[in-house]
Design a protein around this nucleic acid. Sequence first.
DNA 1: GGAAATGTTTGATCTAGATCAAAAACAATT
DNA 2: AATTGTTTTTGATCTAGATCAAACATTTCC
Lengths: 238, 238
Amino acid sequence: MQSAQLNKEFNEKNRCSECNIRPYSFCRCLQEEKLKEFSNISSDKKFQDKTNIFLQQDDAKNIYNITEGNVKIYQLIDDGRIQIIGFLYPGDFFGSYKNGKYNYCAEAIGDVRVCVFEQKKLDEYVDKNMVLAKELLNQTSHELTLAQDRMGVLGKLDATERLAKFLINISEQRKRIGWQNNPLSLPMTRQDIADYLGLTIETVSREVSKLKTSNVVKVLSAKQIYINDFDKLSNLSK
Amino acid sequence: MQSAQLNKEFNEKNRCSECNIRPYSFCRCLQEEKLKEFSNISSDKKFQDKTNIFLQQDDAKNIYNITEGNVKIYQLIDDGRIQIIGFLYPGDFFGSYKNGKYNYCAEAIGDVRVCVFEQKKLDEYVDKNMVLAKELLNQTSHELTLAQDRMGVLGKLDATERLAKFLINISEQRKRIGWQNNPLSLPMTRQDIADYLGLTIETVSREVSKLKTSNVVKVLSAKQIYINDFDKLSNLSK
DNA sequence: GGAAATGTTTGATCTAGATCAAAAACAATT
DNA sequence: AATTGTTTTTGATCTAGATCAAACATTTCC
């Protein structure tokens, strides 16, 4: 994988140029402010591919910040239906800021390193640190915005539009944080994409093939997609 | 309408007993703390049925808190496709905490009274008031949780499950804030419900009829639904 | 290197829910 | 209470995407 180098590059930058919020390297923010206290409330952890970091029904005790790798968070409906809430990247937060149960499951995609904050301790720390409180507020507002956009996708877009928007979004995100955005490397499986977009794996595969046939993308491998025509893709995505 | 009396009752309570967050009467919270400063940064406004409070492309300048009535917030996809993000009740917030454009449109359902906060001034105020900062953080986290639940609904539930869950959710919410929860009065139209659930108006109507036929609910009028069997409805909702 | 396991694509069919159409219920106005 | 406009329900058909099934690719691991 190329992620070690990319993560290093990533860490050089610490703000999303567009929204000025994400990826704010939270750790760094704290380090700049009060390194000592910070190290008291967080610790490093590693997870291997496909291991659960936590489950939906678990007691919510921690907040995590990704240092390396990718994480998917998903809701379990019942018998096995899954809705993926999001694919997360270095700099992203997940977990729960509130007491009670987690609202989703979190699972490592590939090897992952995270920074773990004990919710309770973090909360105490937030009380004493306004910069941190506001940063968390900004972060959470931003996530809320993304979640609202996804309601539009899941509620109103057709399969073609969903996939196109998915690719455009990932590409823009990569560009923003300074990663290679063409060809696009997709860390997740087709099944994951399907569960993210509210489609089946077959439909996702067919839509990818349609993009290939119409020369909008070139499929270098299942997980490496070269975008020939951003404009066309963008038009498809609504 | 019965809402005047109900709103009054509502205002007696100021916290959701379940999550301990919502409906936190933000105004009251501020009033208790620092009434003078509060009145500097907010004002009262009224809107009539079907008037837009703001549009998606508008510059985001305000945050609103509902004092009386209902508001729907929705995303415009393009040509006219609409995805309703949520139906809001007294005590709920909407608008944007961030600069830039609003991420959705807001429209009054029936007559509405709101408390308007200028974002910029509120932000300055937040800087000086940790209680408020944390309250906003809690509020936003809670909204994020709801948004994530809705991804599961829109991505994975079928029409029957969506409607059942919708009715159960509304009923529970009413119960929580001490409003009558059976019969259930629905302030929104069938079209609104359809746009909220990612279905068509015809499908919503058919699903209501199915619930009627199977004796799960009694349809007193289009906007008054009596739930005969909570357990059955709950089972349908997954 | 080859067998087994896993992930992806393609094809054939089926169905939940959309769309089109019209009737019925309800509300508002004179 | 008749007229007009709006909203809801019901019916008949159609279609996007699901499901079922099988071939094809890629990775894993002995």
